[in-house]
Amino acid sequence: MIVGEQKPFDEVWEMVKNHKQLTVFGCNTCVAVCHQGGNKEAEILASLLRMRATQEGVDMDIVNGGIERQCEHPFFESAQEMLEGSEAVLSLACGIGVQFVAEKYMSTPVYPALNTTFLGDVQEDGFFTEKCQACGDCVLGLTGGICPVSRCCKRVLNGPCGGSTNGKCEISKDIDCAWQLVVNRLEALGKLDDYEKIAPVKDWSKDRAGGPRSFKLEGF
């Protein structure tokens, strides 16, 4: 899922303080799982903004709402009226949702309340880790299911590098060496022979190097 973190409250306030009306709009899928951008968080943020407006003596009508997903047209039906009547929207979605709302409502300013941080998993409640960089050319089949693109700090495809010590990365003692994990896993699978194979140069044109990507299904 997509992981995001709420921007510092003062930064959010500075973005929206000059509006007379604001809709704080949650996205109840990915960013709700990480407790940053769901409809509940939208309600909380709207409340905090109302209190800030009162403190600053700013006359601003702040309402909150949300939908299940801000990156797909059909979900917007229930919120259409609310968004059309808004002077400005503060979206708690990831960068995709913010842009989607902005594209749908050309004349309405849309602000991001979150910093979209990475594609990750839920290791435990409240702890999320990066697992994929959407490089467009998956190598997990060769690396024992451990992604060197997202989990190796250097994105080394034939690792580990010389900075790997006791299974940790030289960047930080808190970061596992992805290649140590690859070796451990291949060993567990009895596939250490795979480790000996030299990975060819990766086709980065399928990553961002090829510009913004799109994918179209035939027959839709």
Binding site: E43, R50, M51
Partner: peptide
Amino acid sequence: DHSYILRAFE
């Protein structure tokens, strides 16, 4: 709920 407390403060 969070909102009860925040509404009270509001």
